[in-house]
């Protein structure tokens, strides 16, 4: 059962080892109602965490509570109360997409002709492919099928999505984020593990930042970005050449460069710079189209906390 305090999941001092490798090292966090982003580089322990949450693997030490149950002992009960999109799954290749959707609908006690299911199929633009065997699907189609199956458990207390954006094209990702937005409005609870930080930033209420099997930080965006310097900013105006010649006159700019027609600056006082830029643009009779940090807030957080400020993110 979901407790009144809104805590859906509680991890307390959890350890998980695979032989000599410690995948989770004294991990503690709580997942509250709303949308939570689980972020971290490869090998951070995100998938291990999700595997523990869904009862696929056991934890070695500590305490885990998912919707009031121990996932390892009560995996079946928990999976009845959640919807989960796992990575590395093989759907039955010889079945058609529609046949699989029909059976999964029966599993959840709903009719596959239900308007909700039809809506999901339409939303993920899979209607045209459902009569085909799953073995003929592309990676993107398999992901969309997985998302439909996951969201079919409409009564779930928590939906867990492990890398939902992987293999989706831009359109698919936008649709996924739209759906999560809608579900957020409906009061659904979702845990998303993803590498695509700007997209997470648009939908998440809270974040859990992991690295090397440990929790680096967790909380709302406001909580976790305190002290984060956004560093480099990007400027695009109707005449960047003209603007570049005036940039010298702006105080508080620590560093600047002009590349391929774009202006990049580094400052610790973006508000003051922005104000001064507006004045210069007015004088020069040009329009500032964009003045924004190069990185999204989450990306910057990632660079600061995971890579110690280095710009070598590869994921």
């Amino acid at each position: 059962m979901v407790r009144d305090c809104g805590v859906l999941v509680r991890f307390s001092d959890v350890y998980k080892r695979f032989g000599s490798i410690t995948a989770l090292n004294k991990v503690s966090f709580t997942i509250l109602k709303g949308i939570t982003g689980l972020i971290g580089p490869n090998g951070a322990g995100k998938t291990t965490t999700i595997n523990i949450l869904t009862g696929l693997i056991r934890y070695d030490e500590g305490y885990v509570d998912v919707l009031g149950y121990d996932p390892w002992e009560d995996g079946e009960i928990i999976r009845d109360k959640i919807g989960v999109l796992l990575e590395d799954v093989e759907y039955p290749p010889s079945l058609t997409g529609y046949r699989l959707i029909k059976i999964v609908a029966e599993l959840y006690g709903i009719d596959s002709r239900d308007s909700y299911v039809k809506g999901l199929i339409e939303f993920f633009e899979m209607g045209h492919a459902l009569e085909r065997r799953i073995e003929t699907y592309s990676a993107g189609m398999l992901k969309r099928l997985g998302l439909i199956l996951t969201f079919m458990n409409r009564d779930s207390s928590l939906t867990i999505l492990d890398e939902p954006g992987a293999n989706l094209d831009v359109g698919g990702r936008i649709r996924l984020m739209d759906l999560i937005h809608n579900m957020r409005r409906e009061g659904r609870n979702i845990l998303i593990s993803s590498h695509i930080l700007p997209e997470l930033e648009m939908v998440c209420d809270r974040y859990i930042l992991m690295n090397k099997g440990e929790i680096v930080d967790s909380g709302s965006l406001n909580d976790i970005i305190k002290g984060i310097e956004m560093g480099e900013y990007f400027i695009l105006s109707s005449d960047n050449n003209k603007l570049w010649r005036q940039i010298e006159s702006i105080e508080y700019i620590k560093d600047k460069k002009f590349e391929r027609g774009y202006i990049y600056i580094t400052t610790d006082y973006p508000n003051s710079v922005m104000y001064r830029l507006a004045e210069i643009a007015e004088d020069l009779n040009i329009v500032i189209y964009e003045f924004r940090p190069i990185d999204s807030v989450l990306t910057r957080l990632f660079k600061e906390r995971i890579y110690n400020g280095k710009d070598n993110i590869s994921s």
Partner: peptide, 18 residues
């Protein structure tokens, strides 16, 4: 009973032994 197939089945509410 390969890993990927099991991960698909165990997305649903059923225990491994069942």
């Amino acid at each position: 009973l390969k890993r990927e197939r099991l991960r698909f089945i165990l997305s649903f509410p059923i225990s491994k032994s069942k």
